[in-house]
Design a protein around this nucleic acid. Structure first.
Lengths: 184, 184
DNA sequence: ACCTGAACACCGTTCAAGT
DNA sequence: ACCTGAACACCGTTCAAGT
């Protein structure tokens, strides 16, 4: 009910917000679904967002911005468990983001970097000073979260219940941390 | 150049084989590409295979059937490393299979079960007798392989080179195994 | 600058036919 | 039983226009 040239009052924020809403409803995000929710033609989104991938990037970093960072004085192992569990839960509750997160090899937004830095601090406090060793540890931990979330995000529910996956994630995370951190 | 009713001489094997060829070429598998390679209408495949997911299942188990099982007398940790590394390499060389593998929460074909059984034997020989503990260990190991392969399978090559991902996979695998297996 | 309409080049899958 | 043609219901994205 709007001709060419009539403004719809869109904004980048509104588009990202609508995308989040679409992802709450169903497991996948399509441009056309976001546009429909905004009462707008599909191609209208391209004035505010760099295609579907750009939109998913924005949504992902938006969600990561809401994650709580561990307190500066927490025990390193506890802090790392905290961050990784929170990230894992975030992915579990937004399955539609997982394939994109996977394709992007982890997030690359500013909030993702903020999380990465906080992990570096914790690792350093645990005695992992070498930057390459920190990289490896972070990559292994993030990959574990991505892999588990990806498996859990299977649309049909899958043969393995989510609770068991959550439990095995915690077990694996513990094994990885004792491997990554020097003995105290 | 074939009218309705004329046979094309297709078979399930031919379809699976064509699908493998398509996956060698590019990162994704579409029904229409497989059909084109066979010189056949897209819907002709449905006489031999249960849709795209069924076809991917068949291709995956076909590939798993070619994996070598560890010798019965190998050291458990070495054997598990062997199986998991081989599975990981398989996924690395067939990125198009990874999203499906992820969605299926690991393979469920007969060759996949064969691999699972051999892992159980190795775990038991290492002292992991409890079946639930074996399940957890296998799930963690498989998830690690899936997660790493999924990250490595990113289409654009991604910011992290495959060699580094392969190295961090090995590191993580080592951490997980020392966590999973009782101290010797 | 922002939005629309129409189009392009794809998908997987189904259905009614033909032999 | 096996295959085709046509169609359905989708995709993401681009391009030329309109204000």
């Amino acid at each position: 009910m709007r001709g060419p040239g009539q403004r719809a009052g869109l904004s980048r924020e509104a588009v990202v917000s609508a995308a989040r809403a679409v992802l709450e409803q169903g497991p996948t995000l399509s441009m056309r679904a976001v546009a429909a929710r905004l009462g707008v033609a599909p191609n209208a989104l391209y004035s505010h967002v760099e295609g579907r991938d750009g939109l998913l990037d924005a949504v992902l970093d938006d969600l990561l911005g809401a994650l709580a960072l561990p307190a500066p004085d927490t025990d390193p192992a506890a802090g790392l468990t905290e961050v990784m569990t929170a990230s894992h839960e975030l992915l579990l509750s937004h399955p539609g983001l997982v394939p994109h997160f996977v394709a992007r090899q982890g997030a690359r937004g500013e909030n993702a970097q903020r999380l990465g830095e906080s992990m570096r601090v914790l690792l350093a406090r645990a005695g992992v000073d070498d930057r390459a060793a920190q990289d490896t540890a972070i990559r292994v931990l993030v990959t574990h979260a991505i892999g588990d979330a990806a498996v859990a995000a299977s649309p049909d529910g899958g043969p393995v219940p989510v609770d068991e996956l959550r439990a095995s994630y915690a077990t694996g995370l513990g094994w990885l941390l004792t491997g990554a951190l020097p003995r105290s």
